[in-house]
Design a binder for these strands. Structure first.
Length: 137
DNA sequence: GCCAACGTTGGC
DNA sequence: GCCAACGTTGGC
């Protein structure tokens, strides 16, 4: 099982809204590298839900419930989206500052390529981050 | 509000 | 095919 991190600006689509919805289409991705990551996702993959711009922290865990299919919000029909559902909020949100200060987590693609909105998380990073956030890996 | 990173567009 | 201009993302 692979692990991922997706970003959302909380004033556009927050974790709370995600929980209310119960399931969502992860649409609107317009970056080819991010789209490639979406296409690699498998059902059952776990995903960190990160609040960008405001919050700047991982606030919850999501799960992939549908693999990539065409994103209807893309008029050119080139980009894809996946479906995600919330699994659990984290007990202790993991801030970007904490991530950057950590020798293990500062290697995350989240840090190295800050503009990428869908990025992979290694198994080691996943397990370690889950430990810090008080959730089971 | 600013700026760095970086992707895209368009002229040549 | 190069590169300048420009737009967007996202941290600070």
């Amino acid at each position: 099982m692979a692990h991922w991190l997706v970003k959302s600006e909380p004033f556009k689509y927050s974790w709370d809204q995600f929980v209310k919805d119960g399931r969502t289409h992860w649409d609107g991705v317009r970056n080819h590298q991010a789209a490639k990551n979406l296409k690699t996702m498998a059902v059952g993959d776990r995903v960190f839900f990160y609040h960008s711009n405001e919050g700047l922290e991982i606030v919850g865990i999501a799960e992939v419930v549908a693999t990539a299919y065409p994103d209807p919000s893309d008029p050119a029909g080139r980009f894809v989206m996946v479906d995600l559902k919330p699994v659990t909020p984290v007990k202790a949100p993991l801030t970007l500052k904490r991530i950057k200060d950590d020798p293990v987590l500062s290697e995350m693609q989240l840090v190295k390529q800050s503009r990428l909105s869908v990025c992979p998380v290694t198994d080691d990073q996943w397990a370690y981050a889950c430990g810090l956030m008080g959730v089971e890996a």
